[in-house]
């Protein structure tokens, strides 16, 4: 199976939802839809802000604890960037449907996989942000997230960006970081065994990946500007939205 290293996105393609996006990156494809602000159930109603409801649905099988865990992580992250104060007593509903996950050829897939929850988190967050943008909900910032694995390489250890399922399986620790478009850390989740030094190293790699220095068009090309090979997700979100707006505003 070929894994796409370049992110791909499709915006506003579902007709009944207020906003929708399909995002695929490194073997994961997630379809997201956002409805909101809509009427909220009485028991979920918050008097001074909008309730944010995240629903994560797996491609096969019904959602379990693993999905609930992801939902709670995404919910608490998105609550920070959506301007919830603007819509008191309403509901903003975010549905994330996983459609493809990378397959491991050497293992037979099981429906209820007791594997780690985290590897899919960056794709889910990215889809949620794109869907929110497509639904034109006011946000304080956008997000970029990335995943890293610390793999033992002989005696030393190295940090692998966007690791494959096989690399995650053999890794010693796995980290997910999210940064806002103002280059602030908003989510950090880690699992496995690691030292503070390893975490710091992973953090700095993630920071360089998610918060690349804004391009200065002075004609000078820095040969070693510290940016990493791999997709520039911040740039990707911008260009996707630019393309969408250009096609929407195109005089027909």
């Amino acid at each position: 199976m070929t894994v796409n290293s370049e992110p791909e996105a499709l915006l506003s393609h579902l007709q009944n939802a207020d906003g929708s996006a399909t995002f695929s990156f490194s073997g994961y494809t997630v379809v997201g839809a956002v409805n909101g602000p809509i009427e909220v159930q009485r028991r979920d109603e918050l008097p001074e802000e909008a309730a944010v409801d995240v629903i994560v649905r797996p491609a096969a099988g019904v959602g379990g604890t693993r999905e609930r865990h992801l939902e709670s992580l995404i919910q608490s992250t998105l609550r920070q960037i959506i301007l919830v104060d603007n819509f008191p007593r309403t509901l903003i509903q975010i549905i994330l449907q996983v459609t493809t996950t990378p397959e491991n050829e050497y293992v037979n897939a099981k429906v209820a996989q007791a594997t780690s929850n985290l590897p899919i988190l960056p794709a889910l967050l990215q889809t949620a942000v794109l869907s929110l943008l497509s639904a034109a909900l006011p946000l304080t910032a956008t997000l970029t997230s990335t995943s890293l694995a610390v793999v033992a390489d002989g005696q030393s250890k190295k940090v692998v960006l966007n690791p494959s399922p096989r690399e995650i399986e053999t890794s010693q620790s796995f980290h997910v970081f999210s940064f806002t478009s103002h280059d602030e850390l908003i989510l950090a989740e880690s699992e496995g065994s690691f030292t503070v030094k390893e975490w710091d190293e992973a953090f700095s790699v993630a920071q360089r990946q998610c918060c690349p220095p804004t391009n200065t068009d002075d004609g000078d090309t820095l040969m070693d500007d510290g940016s990493l090979p791999g997709a520039n997700l911040k740039q990707f979100i911008r260009s996707t939205l630019e393309g969408k707006i250009a096609s929407d505003l195109h005089w027909k």
Binding site: A17, S20, V31, I38, R57, I95, Q97
Partner: peptide
């Protein structure tokens, strides 16, 4: 065969 309609299809469907 499992069919579960999510609010993605229409906000009228509930989880």
């Amino acid at each position: 065969i499992t069919t579960e309609l999510s609010p993605m299809a229409s906000p009228a469907f509930e989880v």
